[in-house]
C-alpha cells in the first residue's frame, strides 16, 4: 500500500513531457473553443482535470493538434522547448489579435543527469485545473473577436535544435503595444509552465471609455 503511493509521486522526464504536451493539447482546444475560432458545434465535451473540457471533432484540426503535441513532447524530453505560443490572427488581414504564451522552464539537472523528482499527480492536476478555469474565464476580459479568425502555433526552441522537416522558421508574430494578463502556472518539478495571454487593445473603445470617464 505504502509502496504504491510512493511510486505514484515519482515523476520522470518522459512523464513530465507527456503531462505538459497533453496539457497544451487541451489548452489549445479550450482556447479555440472559447475564442470561437472554430464553430461551437465542432467540439465535443469530455471530462479531464476534473473539469468538463471541450475537444474538437474536426478531423483536420484534430490531426494538427495531435502532430503538434507529439512533436512538443519530443522537444520537452530533450529539454529544448522554451516556449509555445498559440497565435490568433484575423483571417482577412492576418493581423495578430491574441497570443497565448506558455513559457516553459526545464530543470537542466533532470535532462542531463536523469534525476527523478517527486510530485503527486493530484497536485499537478490541481494546478492545471486552475489554469484551465482561467482560460475558460478569459472571455470576460478579452475583447470580442468580431471577424473570422485563424490560429497558428509557434514553438520557441533552443538555437541548436534541428528543424524537423515539417516545420519552418517563423517570425514572432508580436502584437504592437499589447495588453498582457498573466495566468496561473503549474510545475511538474521538471517543467515549469507559465501562462500568459497578450492581446490587442481595442483602441476605440478604450478611448471613448476614458473620455467619458473624465468628462
Amino acid at each position: 500500500m505504502a509502496s504504491r503511493t510512493v511510486s505514484k509521486d515519482i515523476i520522470t522526464l518522459k512523464g513530465s513531457a507527456a503531462i505538459v504536451s497533453e496539457f497544451f493539447g487541451y489548452a489549445a482546444n479550450s482556447i479555440l473553443y472559447n475564442r470561437g475560432v472554430y464553430p461551437e458545434e465542432s467540439f465535443a465535451r469530455v471530462k479531464k482535470y476534473g473539469l468538463p473540457m471541450l475537444l474538437t471533432q474536426d478531423e483536420a484540426v484534430k490531426t494538427f493538434i495531435t502532430n503538434l503535441t507529439s512533436q512538443l513532447s519530443e522537444w520537452l524530453e530533450a529539454g529544448q522547448l522554451q516556449r509555445i505560443v498559440l497565435v490568433i490572427m484575423s483571417k482577412a488581414a492576418g493581423e495578430v489579435l491574441e497570443r497565448w504564451n506558455f513559457n516553459i522552464v526545464t530543470d537542466v539537472e533532470v535532462v542531463e543527469k536523469g534525476v527523478i523528482k517527486e510530485k503527486s499527480d493530484k497536485e499537478i492536476m490541481r494546478e492545471i485545473q486552475a489554469i484551465m478555469r482561467q482560460v475558460n474565464s478569459c472571455i470576460s476580459f478579452l475583447p470580442c473577436l468580431e471577424e473570422p479568425c485563424i490560429f497558428d502555433v509557434l514553438a520557441y526552441t533552443d538555437a541548436e535544435t534541428a528543424v524537423p522537416f515539417t516545420w519552418v522558421e517563423s517570425d514572432a508574430k508580436l502584437i504592437d503595444n499589447p495588453q498582457m494578463v498573466k495566468l496561473h502556472s503549474f510545475d511538474t518539478k521538471i517543467h515549469k509552465v507559465d501562462t500568459m495571454v497578450s492581446y490587442k487593445v481595442d483602441d476605440l473603445d478604450d478611448d471613448s471609455y476614458i473620455a467619458s470617464f473624465e468628462a
Binding site: P39, A60, F64, P148, I150, T157, T161, W167, S170, D171
Partner: peptide
C-alpha cells in the same frame, strides 16, 4: 540568438463554416 521560433509548414485548417455563419 538563443532561440529559434518554429511553426508548422502545414497551417491549421481555416474555419470554413464559421465564415458563412458570421
Amino acid at each position: 540568438g538563443r532561440t529559434r521560433i518554429l511553426t508548422f509548414r502545414n497551417k491549421p485548417p481555416e474555419p470554413q463554416g464559421m465564415l458563412q455563419q458570421i
